[in-house]
Design a protein around this nucleic acid. Structure first.
Lengths: 120, 120
DNA sequence: ACAATACATACCCATATAGGAATATGTCAA
DNA sequence: TTGACATATTCCTATATGGGTATGTATTGT
C-alpha cells in the first residue's frame, strides 16, 4: 500500500508546509485565492489544489462572492491535532523537569566541589 | 516533485496512524520492539520501519539492552506540533462563541416571533 | 560452535502525490 | 456577445511511500 491520501484526515493534510502556511494565513479572516497566491508566492493552480485538499478534510470553508471565492480556516478541524499532541504534554514537562533536576543536582555538586576545594 | 519525505519532519512522520499509535504506546515508558508488535498487531518489519522513521525525526529514542532494543517516545519532539496547533486555539473558541451567539440570537428571534404571534 | 531469539534491512510493487503547463469553468463589465 | 478576470481542473512525471516477503546482523544460551 502507498502512503495514505493527503485528504484522508487533518494529520495528512497539514503534513504539507504550504498548507500549514495557508491555514495560518486564513486563520484570522477570509481571503480570496489571489491574495494567498501573492502573499505566499505560489502559483495559482498550486494554491487551488492545496485549497482543494484543505476543503476536503474540512480545514477551510469557502464562500462565493462574485467571481471571487473567500476562504477561511476552520479552526475547529485543527482541534483533533491539538488534542492528540496534548496527550504528550505531561511527558514533555516531566522530561523538562528531569533535565532541570539534573541541572540543579549538577549545580549543587559544583557548589559542593567548590566548598571542599576551599577547605583544602 | 513528489510528497515530502515522511522523515522530513515531525508533521510528516505523525501523519501515519500506526506511527501515532506507536508514539502513544511508547509515551509513558520504554518497550522493546516485540511488545509493540504484539500490542498493535502489526508485523515486525513494519514496526521496525516505522520506528526507523520515528528515530530519524527524533520522535523516539533507542537504548540497547542485550538482544533487545528499548524504545521510548521523545515527547519533546512533539512540541512543535503542539505549538503550531495552539496558534489556532483562540480562533476555535471564537468560532464556538459565534455559534453560541447565533444560537442565542435565533432563540431570541423565536421568542420575538412567538410574542408577535400572540399579539395577532 | 551452534541454534535460537530479537531486530533491522533489502527488495518488489501499487499508489498517491506536488509541481508545472495547459485548459476549463464561471462571473462580471461593456 | 465578447472579453477580461478569478479560480478550478486535467494531464504529465519523478518520487517516496507502506505492506509483504525474505534475508542480514547481533546477542544470548548451551
Amino acid at each position: 500500500m502507498a502512503r495514505a491520501a493527503t485528504t484522508s484526515d487533518a494529520f495528512n493534510a497539514v503534513a504539507e508546509p504550504r498548507r500549514r502556511q495557508i491555514l495560518i494565513y486564513l486563520a484570522h479572516d477570509e481571503r480570496q485565492v489571489g491574495d494567498i497566491v501573492t502573499a505566499l508566492g505560489l502559483d495559482q493552480p498550486s494554491v487551488s489544489k492545496h485549497l482543494g485538499v484543505l476543503r476536503e478534510v474540512g480545514l477551510v470553508r469557502v464562500r462565493r462572492n462574485g467571481r471571487h471565492r473567500l476562504y477561511r480556516t476552520n479552526a475547529e478541524a485543527i482541534r483533533p491535532l491539538h488534542d492528540w499532541t496534548e496527550t504528550f504534554e505531561r511527558y514533555w514537562s516531566h522530561q523538562l523537569n528531569r533535565v532541570k533536576e539534573r541541572a540543579e543536582r549538577t549545580e549543587a555538586q559544583i557548589n559542593r566541589d567548590r566548598a571542599s576545594n576551599q577547605k583544602s
